[in-house]
């Protein structure tokens, strides 16, 4: 796979300092289209910080991010999403006072072309696009098992469903790369199992690359083709699940000395 395709994401020497503290340093990573890549590491290793740099929530102090062949150094959060990176958040960030359906519809704003005047006057172009948006949103909700909850307030959903809604909303932006920050956190084993199937099926269906942070080792080892291990802000190891499982350094970092 890696030999005949250009990587969708190519990160080299990425680093960030918070005051005197270097949270992440010399982080390099290539993710290929259609790949499911894992990013693991102990608490505070800098995993979420990497996501925040990849989406420009934090401006990296050094290093480069090439996405889809384009240099992203001048891009902000909005531009990164428009370029094709979508994400979920470790501490869920839904639009809690909006309905489940509207959360997903909001993710589709980028593909809507009608203007405000057309919306205020309810012109045919507005009606047509709104109908299409509603249909594609319902389709996405179905994939994530949320179609029954379409009319509920997002903030009132159970925890597991909120995590799935965040994924649906991210997918609504039609990304090339999806970043998932601990998607299975707080889910029971059965929900986690279903989540793994969902992650695989959206990869197959949309052909996107997925980079996911997860503490649930069964999930990570089960669905990731390759895994990067982060410790104290630096890459400790990289390889296939079986290579990672047998790496003495990784075992040491996880179990402590």
């Amino acid at each position: 796979m890696e030999n005949n395709k250009a990587p969708v994401l190519e990160v080299t020497g990425l680093g960030i300092d918070f005051g005197g503290l270097t949270a992440v340093d010399n982080f390099s990573l290539s993710v290929y289209p259609g790949e499911i890549r894992g990013l693991i590491g102990p608490n505070g290793a800098g995993k979420t910080t990497v996501f925040n740099m990849l989406t420009k929530v934090y401006e990296p102090s050094r290093g480069s991010i090439i996405f889809d062949g384009k240099d992203t150094s001048k891009m902000d959060v909005v531009a990164m999403n428009r370029a094709g990176i979508a994400r979920t958040f470790q501490n869920i960030r839904l639009f809690s006072k909006m309905t489940v359906l509207d959360n997903v519809k909001a993710g589709m704003n980028g593909r809507i072309t009608y203007g405000n005047v057309a919306a205020i006057l309810r012109l045919p172009g507005f009606r047509k696009q709104e109908k299409e948006i509603k249909e594609s949103s319902m389709e996405l909700l179905k994939i994530f098992g949320l179609e029954e909850s379409a009319g509920l307030m997002a903030g009132n959903l159970p925890y597991g469903a909120q995590r799935r809604l965040e994924m649906a909303r991210a997918m609504a932006t039609d990304p090339k790369l999806l970043l998932l920050d601990e998607p299975a956190a707080g889910m029971n084993p059965q929900e986690t199992e279903e989540l793994m199937d969902m992650v695989r099926s959206i990869r197959d269906r949309f052909g996107i690359a997925i980079l996911l942070i997860e503490h649930d080792m069964q999930l990570v080892m089960g669905i990731c083709e390759r895994i990067t291990v982060l410790n104290y802000g630096m890459i400790l190891s990289e390889g296939t699940p079986s290579e990672i499982q047998n790496d003495p350094q990784v075992i040491k970092a996880y179990l402590g000395d």
């Binding site: 959060v77 909006m98 909001a106 809507i112």
Partner: peptide, 25 residues
């Protein structure tokens, strides 16, 4: 009519969560 359109959803999204709103463009 504005509220029930692309812009209305964007306005409410930005109110509910600024970072999440910019993360979806």
């Amino acid at each position: 009519n504005l509220m029930d359109s692309k812009s209305g959803r964007a306005i409410m999204a930005a109110r509910d969560n600024r970072i999440a709103a910019s993360s979806i463009g």
